[in-house]
Amino acid sequence: MREKLVYILAIVGAVLLAWNLYGIFTVLPDEAAQGAIYRIIFIHVPAAITAFTGFFIALVLSAMYLKTGDLRYDSAAASVTEVSFVFACVNVATGSIWARIIWGIWWTWDPRLTSMFVCLLIYFGYLMLRKAIDEPTQRGRLSAALSIFGFVDVIIVWKSIQWWRTQHPSPVLSIRTGGGNIDPAMEHMIYRDLLAFLLIAAAIVLVRMRQEMIEREIDSLRRLAHA
C-alpha cells in the first residue's frame, strides 16, 4: 500500500512538474524588467515554502516524539528534515543564480539571505547530531530538542523581509501582500509548482522513512546479536 502511494505521489508530482515547466517556458511571457531570468522564481519560491512546511512538520513530529516516545515519529521527523534541507539548498542555489544575473553578485549579507544560510547550518547540525549518536532513544530525544530550538530561525527567515530593510525583494504572493505585486497567471504557476514540489517531497519522505525504519530494525538485530 505504502509502495503504491509512493509511486502515485511521485508520478503525479513529476507529471504536474513537467506540465508546469512547459507552461513556464512556452506560455508565460518574459518579465518586463528582468527578462527570462525571472522564471527562476517558479523554482525558488516553491522550494522555500516546501522547505519551511517540512521544517514545521518536523517540529510537530519532534514534539509528538517527545510526548509519546514512539520512534516512528522520530524517523518521520528525521526524514522530513532531510528532504526539507535539500529543498532549502535548492532555494539558496536558485536565489544565488538569480542574484548573479540581476545584482551582479552571487551573494550579499542581507538579513534574508544570512538568516536562510543560518537555517541551513542549523539543520545541517541536526543531521550531524543524528549521525553522532548511536543510541536510538537518545538520538530521538536530542534531535527533537534541536528541531524545536532550530525552528525559531525559520520564523526569523520568514519575517526577515518585514523586520529589516533588505536587498532581497519584498513578498509577492497575494496571501502575504493582499495582491497587486505579481500577475495572477504567474502567481497561479507558483502555486501549481508548489503542489508539484510538495507531492515529490512527500514521495521522497515516504521512501526515506522506510529506509529509516529498516535501518532501525537492522540496528536492533545487531544489538540483540551482541547481547
Binding site: 547550518l121 550531524m128 547530531l129 553522532a132 536530542l142 530550538f149
Partner: peptide, 21 residues
Amino acid sequence: MTVNLKLRELMLPVLIYPLLL
C-alpha cells in the same frame, strides 16, 4: 545535549553558533 557524545568538543560549536547568530 552534547555531554554524553563522543564528539562533544566538536559538536557543541557546530550546533550552538548558528543558533547564536
